[in-house]
Design a protein around this nucleic acid. Structure first.
Length: 310
DNA sequence: ATTCAGCACGGTACGACGTA
DNA sequence: TACGTCGTACCGTGCTGAAT
């Protein structure tokens, strides 16, 4: 059902969110600084709009209906974004000359930086972003030392004092040159994958790749003839040979576009790469940091490499 | 918690007026 | 004549207090 936002009173979402938290009309009204009667009327309007009771009496409390539970998270997230946006008025991005440091592996840099810098050139032309290559356990200590402002990475574990915001999951894929002799009609078979010679990319802090772990579970191994600790030479090596490499889909799409390569789905399932950003609580309420985290999140949410290829 | 009556406030429509 | 601004009347919305 489509709603016209012009006709929708967005204050109702604040009331809904408060009802979810307080589980009572009187308590929610008190929290919002209105009388219980006004709150009851607000609930009536919410019920009309969503065509659902939303909250039903259960003992002394008003419990949410399934429809209310369905709405709760998206409404809370939207309100959180608005609150963050309103907090930003104390930081002037357009006039700022600040440098923000992101700790991330080099292939995340390739994924994030083109679109992030493009976004910043419009909204904060004086802001500088510095990519700091950190890996594995170093990531958290770099954050704690204040060497970086945020980390964009996969995290197996973070200490409780670090705030983590999971953003996306990504499949692993295989990257190779176009018209590769082992890849017929654009589909990569297990036989071809095992017959091919591979470059293994192993950034700092990642001893074994997810793909090799998934193969090992099947008692299989790919032929690794070259191991690289950095991302820089990968596109040229893959483009100029019959070597294949496996990596997260987002990075593979960026590389494929840059070096005119081909991305193929793996012929077996692997664990997904779970990407998140993390920051230290001391920067939690800092308007400049809040603003910068939003820019990073927005870039990731809108990024080209998250969209399905045509 | 719900409903109702009364009240305040803001938005909209419309006419009068001034200006280019 | 067209356009913008201002004042006024009307209406819808949301509030409070009281009754249920």
């Amino acid at each position: 059902m489509k709603r016209n936002l012009n006709k929708f009173d967005l204050n109702l979402l604040v009331a809904f969110d408060t009802l979810m938290m307080e589980r009572g009309v009187t308590r929610a009204g008190r929290a919002l600084g209105i009388t219980q009667a006004a709150m009851s009327n607000t609930l009536r309007r919410l019920r009309e709009i969503f065509d659902d009771p939303l909250f039903v009496k259960s003992g002394a409390r008003m419990e949410p209906t399934p429809r209310a539970l369905e709405l709760a998270e998206p409404v809370a997230l939207a309100l959180q974004k608005i609150r963050v946006a309103l907090d930003q008025e104390r930081f002037d991005p357009y006039g700022s000359k600040r440098t923000f440091r992101i700790g991330m592996l080099d292939y995340f840099t390739a994924m994030l930086m083109p679109e992030l810098t493009q976004l910043l050139s419009r909204v904060a032309p004086g802001v500088v972003v510095r990519a700091v290559d950190v890996g594995g356990e170093d990531e958290i200590s770099a954050l704690e030392r204040g060497d970086v402002d945020i980390i964009f990475s996969r995290f197996q574990w973070v200490p409780p004092k670090v705030t983590l915001n999971r953003l996306l999951e990504m499949e692993y894929v295989c990257l190779h040159r176009k018209n590769h002799p082992l890849v017929g009609d654009g589909k990569l078979t297990m036989e071809a994958l095992l017959e091919a010679r591979h470059i293994q990319y192993y950034p700092r802090g990642m001893d074994n790749t997810v793909v090799d772990e998934a193969l090992a579970e099947r008692d299989l191994h790919r032929q690794i003839v070259c191991r690289l600790g950095s991302f820089g030479m990968l596109p040229a090596l893959v483009a100029g040979s019959d070597l294949m490499t496996c990596m997260p889909e987002g990075a593979a799409r960026v590389m494929a576009r840059q070096a005119n390569l081909q991305v193929s789905q793996l012929p077996f399932p692997t664990a997904k790469l779970r990407l998140a950003i993390a920051w230290h609580p001391r920067t939690e309420r800092d308007p400049a940091h809040i603003w910068f985290r939003e820019q990073v999140k927005t870039t990731i949410e809108r990024s080209e490499w998250r969209r399905q290829p045509e």
